[in-house]
Design a protein around this nucleic acid. Structure first.
Lengths: 86, 86
DNA sequence: TGAAATTTGTGCGTATGTATT
DNA sequence: GAATACATACGCACAAATTTC
């Protein structure tokens, strides 16, 4: 475990910090395919950042193909086999 | 000329409409490398959408490699030779 | 020297819409 | 109908870098 919180005073912007934290939680297997990712609102409260900041973090991971969001359903980890390489 | 305004009542969200409009202006050569792209604030007023919406549109074009933003300087069209194909 | 204006980057809060449960 | 959850949009504020005067 390296980073577990968002530091608002660090140089790296919170949305990138949170993206990194979630990326690590996925890599570690804690957040795995089939496991429901905490809702945006929950993540917002957990990490003390705004909802829009969480959305931005998820946007990063979505662009990486790590997660997939289903409107009015939730956010999911993409199975490793389906992730774009690179 | 096909689309020149953003329709808030259309199905396509404004940020995608604006991205399409700017993409067309680039494709037509009106916005070319070396020509200064209107600032986010200007685009916001021109098209009647919020600054944050313009930013989102530019984010789409940036992801496509069509434009490049330089903080405290402006936004530029990427020369065709330097654009990623596909 | 330096102050003001400009421009992008980032963050927050709020509202509305739509789909699911 | 109510609660939940994501999608989109808006407006505001501040920071940092650059340009201009």
């Amino acid at each position: 475990m390296i980073k577990v919180t968002v530091d608002h005073r660090a140089e790296e912007p919170p949305y990138l910090q949170l993206a990194g934290i979630l990326r690590a939680r996925i890599a570690s297997g804690e957040l795995a395919p089939g496991v429901m990712i905490p809702s945006i609102t929950t993540l917002s409260q957990e990490y003390g950042v705004a909802v829009s900041t969480v959305r931005r973090s998820l946007g990063v991971l979505k662009a990486e193909g790590l997660i997939r969001t289903r409107p009015s359903w939730g956010t999911f980890v993409v199975p490793e086999a389906e992730r774009p390489k690179n």
